[in-house]
Design a protein around this nucleic acid. Structure first.
Lengths: 212, 212, 212, 212
DNA sequence: TATGAATGAGGCTTCATTCAT
DNA sequence: AATGAATGAAGCCTCATTCAT
């Protein structure tokens, strides 16, 4: 009995190890350079073993992406509690943006991966799951936005406009952070700049900005 | 003599045709699906011929990217003249953003391509050229920004912050426009939303936004 | 003591279950699609357990094939008794053909499997066993044939010719029944057609057919 | 101009060479053992080159099968002319059977291949083509059969029954000829036996066979 | 200059069998 | 005896680039 439990735990752990290693490799070398064999080698297992845990390479990637989206979801939900309970205006927007910016490497990697996998039509159920989580994330944002619009704080447009703008800014900030080209332009000001972006993000749909 | 001239012209034209066709195919099928053979077939020439014009597939891509960056440069320069001569505040920022948003498909394609090619270390001279153009583009933006900061219109931070934010917003807006996930969220409001983003982009670094 | 007995019975039963399940799967999905894992899963046991009962996948297959050949043997033997005791002319031939046609799915499956396994040189002892049974089956047919030739009923050629022809006709009828191509040609006449074939089979070596 | 012609001829020839070699290997080792690499090696070309001529392994196989079916078609058509013009009764049936028996190795190989490829759903257009040819072959047979039924020579059943029986007998004879098991049973009588089968085939649906 | 056949490294995936527990 | 995780050889296919004509 005990043995079975231990075995099953080891199996889970190995799965985790595969995921972690895959992520590390992806972040280090980029999707184009990461092969199933490379992952297996780095984990120290055979190629075939990977396929005991995942049905395809795409599935590994999607697992990572879904994990990430879930964590983002959690961050948003926590911020939502705070924003609602303590009336901490902008907390959700700030949390959303800073989460993505903070994890910019992963975020950016997953952006690219998602686009590729969607184009390939790979593992549609998992893509649907990913999108489901994201949809609910955005619904959380929309809820707050509606309240703020009601208060006259945010400009009265389709709530989606606000969160889409937030998404876009995050997306762009993440890409920026990741870009080789801008490396030197950001240099030592990275932190400071991200504050700048964060402020923009939180305030960009504010009513008075466009009032005149 | 005449023949040589004609031949040389035909050669140039063929090159143009390769570039145009490659771009069309890239936009239609995406980088992963476009092969050198496909391009050659569509142009109606042999695969080998392509290699008389370009040393590698990456070179074709970079030519397209450089062309694009040049056109963006031109748009910025024209807007700069206007902003300076007619004191049309925000003209450059607006022009920059709207250019990229307008060519969002190409812009997005080139974002991805650039990252890939940089990662591969392909044709470094051309990448340097590309980056050179972009640097000068941004220098143009920085120049205006400095003026506006001097006027107290824009917040007094490193001018780079302003154009980096603009770049990020553009980048995000373009990605948004291209994303399958957001397709239905944007739907029929695409134009309207892009106006919304444009306004944000033009005003996002304004002093009063952060004054309080 | 009792336990051991029960255990041993359970073990036998499990073996039977593996064989039944394997056959079901083979008939449903075809040899190419059936994996050892699939069989184990469907039986509800571990893959390793299968290897406690059989030394290889080929062995499972050969067990099924031998079983089948044994049943065919039995049918022939019963018919032989009848043909001899009641002088039921053609009973054996009819029985042979109708048995194979009746079990056409299995028969066809095993045809293919046999060829494959023979080509691979797998488990030669079992293949020898299979062939042994078949030889004795045919010997039974030959015995009757010799009698009928003696009676002047069947054409006086090597008795093997008669049973080989029967084998061939059965083989072909079975393949026909199984073929996708002929599906629509047979359609609703399958039963009727098989009667037609049966008649041919029973009479095809008759003396008068060729007498003129 | 001349060069292009020669090149194109060489290309065709290479295609033929691939087909021939593939067939040789298939006949020698059987489908399971033949890999694309093996074919390429034997032809003396690179693996990739094969894919300039054929889109997949299945396509090579289907080309071979279609070629064969075409040749069979031709044999039938020639016999039909004879049977009609010279009233050579049974010529078509005889030609059909003897063609298949004569090429029994190929015939048998293709039977197996066809079943496999149909099951896989590979290259459906080519399978449709193959079946189209066979359908027209059978239509030829049916035509003659109808005449013979009209003359009272053949039993008055669905004409398909006659050709299906012929197909089945051929199929079985071919399998027999190919079987390792029957090798020694046929031994030196192979020719003679095939005559025996041929006679059966030609006469098996004759009216008088069943008249009493 | 133009061609396009040839290349072959490299990627993903499958599965019978083994073996430590 | 039962398990099932691990293995790794082997198969198919792609495509940028080269090179002889």
């Amino acid at each position: 009995m005990d043995k079975m439990l231990r075995k099953s735990q080891e199996f889970r752990q190995r799965e985790e190890e595969i995921l972690t290693t895959a992520l590390d490799l992806l972040l280090e070398y980029g999707d184009e350079k990461v092969t199933v064999e490379l992952i297996a080698d780095k984990v120290g297992i055979g190629k075939g073993t990977i396929y005991k845990h995942f049905n395809s390479k795409a599935e590994i990637y999607l697992r990572l992406m879904i994990d990430y989206e879930r964590k983002l979801s959690q961050a948003i939900n926590e911020a939502m509690v705070e924003e609602k309970e303590r009336d901490a205006k902008g907390a959700v927007a700030r949390s959303y943006l800073s989460f993505r910016i903070k994890h910019n490497e992963k975020d950016h990697l997953f952006q690219r991966l998602e686009e590729k996998l969607v184009a390939l039509g790979a593992v549609p159920e998992m893509i649907a799951e990913l999108h489901g989580i994201r949809s609910s994330n955005l619904e959380g944002l929309a809820e707050i936005i509606r309240v703020r619009i009601g208060e006259g704080l945010l400009e009265d447009v389709d709530p989606a406009f606000h969160y889409l703008a937030a998404w876009a800014l995050a997306q762009g900030a993440v890409a920026l952070n990741h870009s080789k080209f801008f490396e030197d332009k950001l240099d030592n000001h990275r932190e400071e700049f991200m504050q700048f972006i964060l402020d923009i993000g939180v305030k960009m749909g504010n009513r008075r900005n466009r009032s005149e």
